[in-house]
Every structure is written in structure tokens, then in C-alpha cells.
Design a protein around this nucleic acid. Structure first.
Lengths: 241, 241
DNA sequence: CCAAGTTGTCTATGATACTAGACAACTTGA
DNA sequence: TCAAGTTGTCTAGTATCATAGACAACTTGG
């Protein structure tokens, strides 16, 4: 493909548009592996470097993701994540037709700092369970969360979460049938090295940081969390009214 | 105006598209004088030479005409395209005093889908020749067409079209002296990236989509086509009675 | 472990895009 | 006639676009 009589549109842009169209048309679906750079270059009659430019532009926009040695894959579209008083990760992901999954990274004992104590309605220094977990949709990491619970109210919470792989089912194990979201604070930042590895994100990528506390139906704090979402994989929906 | 975060679209093309849009929208009419090159350069925050490049591209396509010492004037007029039982692109364009031209993009083998088989009076799966071609008037692309013919009735149709550059002359080669238009269906849509590049149209522009079948004098289907016209360069005339 | 296939990075070259400034050639209206 | 405004042409420098080849780094399957 030669620059179409110098049309004013860069070759790499035409290639990028072609690939994006293939994704939009369903010729490639989320998770699919694209043809190799060489193959794309041949089908468009273009140099491999031009294809790389096109793929870089798509990767920049989070539409594809290159894996060295393996291939380039179609990124899932952003997960629509409504922020309501009832927010359950597994329900939200399931409602999008994707497979929710939770994975325990570690569960440790901890002591309440002043902030944690205030959020949870406990005394400073009260024993807590701290759960570091990762949540996925269709095997793509969406967020890592640090969750704190009272160690007295939820003894052995780490093992239970590890077994159930769901915060909701873990609370059910302790007889909590329902809960609701209290305050939610949202900020943004840059991923650190630890979270980057856990989220399978390149360094320097933006994250959405959510601090939230869940309450039981009487308004008593149950758990408080500090979650970091891969910004390019999720879109928060705030419902007005 | 700097290259918009390196969008892959040349600055002069953005300026040219802007001016062309102004003409299409009626902000400038045929015969009007455009603002001076300096003024255009200022409104687009661009060097005067870039404006000259844009105007040169428009002049090349016969849309504007520059007069030294005086100004640049709008030339554009839509191609009047009558829809009759006898529709020959080259005749229609020639009748407007413009130079018709055809160009083969590709010719491939194909198999009849149910719809194509019905249109052509063939069996599903019958071998077809699929011709992708572009038609121009005075070097301005007017439409791209996908044409299907029976591979058995017209063997090697792709090469013949490539050589004759005319559908009419191609059919003459197979002994078809005359044909007439059967059903014609017209819809509209937005140009996709591939057609945009072929029609030299900015993305997002409207197209006229025409599906039609040509019959021989006994009413037997010869070819069926799916054509996309640049809406801003053509005006269909339907003759009543 | 190895071979094949993949993406990542480097260097290099030529063409094109964009900016900048200057001046020539021409038209228009006062 | 003259001044102002217009398009046409030239030189020059910087950045981007596109091609080309080579090799490194990595993954996958046998």
C-alpha cells in the first residue's frame, strides 16, 4: 500500500483504522490474538515499522496490548462499573457478561491506625485482618484491593476469603446477609511497581483509587477498603438522582 | 495549529477538509471568493504555505480556482446523476463535460451468497467474479463499487475490466451490446475508513449507497452492484413518468 | 533444551510536512 | 499613477513519515 497519492492521511493511520474497524466489526474479539506484525505488514503492503506505529497508537488508547514473544491481543472494552449503594464486584462483572474472579494475594494481621479505627468504629490499635486481593474479569486484572476487617468480629477471614474468592460470600459465612456502601472517595494516581505487577500494567499507567467503607443494614461499619483500579480497563458510572 | 497530537492526518488535509466542508455546507457558494491565504492561515493557526498546499489540493480536484493578484474562488458543483433505465457512468459524466475514468482496485473470486444468487438468478455457491472499482470525474473520486458477475458467463472479467476501465466496454467484450437497469435501492450511511481512503473523503462524511442489478434485453440478470457515492459530489436525479 | 515465531530496539536513509522569511507578479480601487 | 492586497515562487531548516535491515528479548510448543 503506497500513500494513496499523498492523501494527507498517514499510512500508519490507515492501518490503525483498518485494525480498529476489524475489532469493531467483530472480526477480532476481546482477547483474540491479532495476526503477527509481519503478516499485517504484508496484508496492508506496508513496512513492519509502519504496522508497529499503528499498533502503538492503538495500544496507547488501550485498544490492543502487545506481549513480547507472544503476540498482540485485543484488549477488552472498559468495564462499566456503576457506583451505587449496592456495589458487588461479582454482580457488576457478571451483568456485563464477563466472568468475575477473585484471588487472594495475602492475608495478615494488622492493628488499627487512627484513620482505620475511625472508619471502622473501633479503637486505635484494635486487631484487624488485612486482606490483599485482586479482582479479575475474564482473567484480566481489574483492581487490587486492601481490605480491613475487625479480627474479633471476623476471625479467620483470610482463609474464608481464600476459599470463597468473594467478599460477599465471605461475609455471608459470618451471617452478614446484606450490606451497603457508605462513603466512597475517588482519586487518581500512577500505579506503583507492586500494583503494576499485580494488575499486569506497564509502569506509569494511571489508576483510579477508591476508598470505601461498607456498612451493615444498621449503619455499623463492617469493612473498609483501599482499591486501585486499572484506569484503562474500567469506567465508573455515577448515577444521578 | 500543531499536528493534533500527531493524529496521522496532515495539517494541510485538515485545512482542505475545513474549506471543503465550508463549501458543502453552503458557507461558500460557487463563484464566491475565499478569504485570503493569510487570513485562512490565521484562522487555522497555520503557515501560509500549508494553506497553499490545501488550496492546491482543492484546485487539483477542480473545487476551487486561484487567480493571481485577485483571490481564490469556489468552482464546485455537484455531479448531476440521472437515474434512468439506461445509466452508464461514462455517458453521464461525459454529458456534464467532465472526464470520466474508472480504476480497478481488485478482482477476486467469490461464491454466491443467498442474496447474490437471488439477484443474479444463480444457485447459492455459484462461482462469481467480484470487482472492486472506483469511478472518477475529472480525477475526483465519485463512487466505489463492488460488482459481482457469474464467473462462468464472464471468465476473466477482472482482467478485461482492468484493461478497458469501463463496465460497458467490459460487457461488450463478452458480446453484450446493451443492457438496462433493473431494481435500484438507495440508502445513505457514513463512510467507513476504507471507502474514505478510496474516495479521498474525510471520515464521518455521508455516502449514498446504491444496490442495483443490470439486466440484458431479455430481462436476465447480468451483474449486480453495491456502490457507495460521495454524497457531497453527486446529486441523483429521478425522472418521473 | 531447542527451534520457530513473536515483539522490542537500534541505526540509517530518503521523502514529505510544516514553518519561516523574502520578494516577484498581478489585480483592484482610490 | 499609486498603494494596498492578492497569489506565485524561491531558499532554508526542523520534524515526522516510511522504508530497510539487523539483532536482542521473550514465549510457545515439541
Amino acid at each position: 500500500m503506497q500513500d494513496t497519492a499523498s492523501s494527507g492521511v498517514a499510512l500508519w493511520r490507515l492501518v490503525a483504522d483498518g485494525i480498529e474497524r476489524g475489532i469493531a466489526d467483530g472480526r477480532f474479539s476481546a482477547g483474540d490474538k491479532l495476526p503477527g506484525e509481519m503478516e499485517i505488514a504484508e496484508t496492508y503492503r506496508v513496512n513492519r515499522h509502519t504496522v508497529r506505529r499503528a499498533l502503538a497508537a492503538l495500544a496507547e488508547r488501550g485498544i490492543v496490548r502487545a506481549e513480547r514473544g507472544s503476540g498482540t491481543y485485543v484488549e477488552a472494552q472498559k468495564l462499566a462499573y456503576p457506583l451505587r449503594s449496592r456495589t458487588r464486584f461479582s454482580e457488576i462483572v457478571g451483568a456485563e457478561g464477563r466472568e468475575p474472579q477473585g484471588r487472594l494475594i495475602e492475608a495478615t494481621d494488622d492493628l488499627a491506625t487512627r484513620e482505620l479505627a475511625r472508619e471502622l468504629g473501633l479503637k486505635v490499635g484494635a486487631p484487624l485482618v488485612r486482606i490483599e486481593a485482586i479482582r479479575l474479569a475474564d482473567r484480566t486484572p481489574i483492581c487490587v484491593s486492601t481490605t480491613w476487617l475487625s479480627a474479633e468480629q471476623f476471625p479467620g477471614a483470610g482463609e474464608v476469603f481464600s476459599a470463597t474468592r468473594s467478599m460477599t460470600r465471605m461475609l455471608e459465612h459470618y451471617g452478614i446477609r446484606d450490606y451497603r456502601r457508605g462513603a466512597t472517595r475517588i482519586t487518581a494516581g500512577i500505579v506503583d511497581a507492586t500494583d503494576a505487577a499485580r494488575l499486569d500494567l506497564p509502569l506509569g499507567r494511571p489508576i483510579l483509587v477508591v476508598d470505601a467503607t461498607d456498612l451493615n443494614l444498621e449503619g455499623k461499619p463492617l469493612v473498609t477498603k483501599h482499591s486501585r483500579f486499572a484506569a484503562e480497563r474500567v469506567e465508573f458510572l455515577v448515577e444521578n438522582g
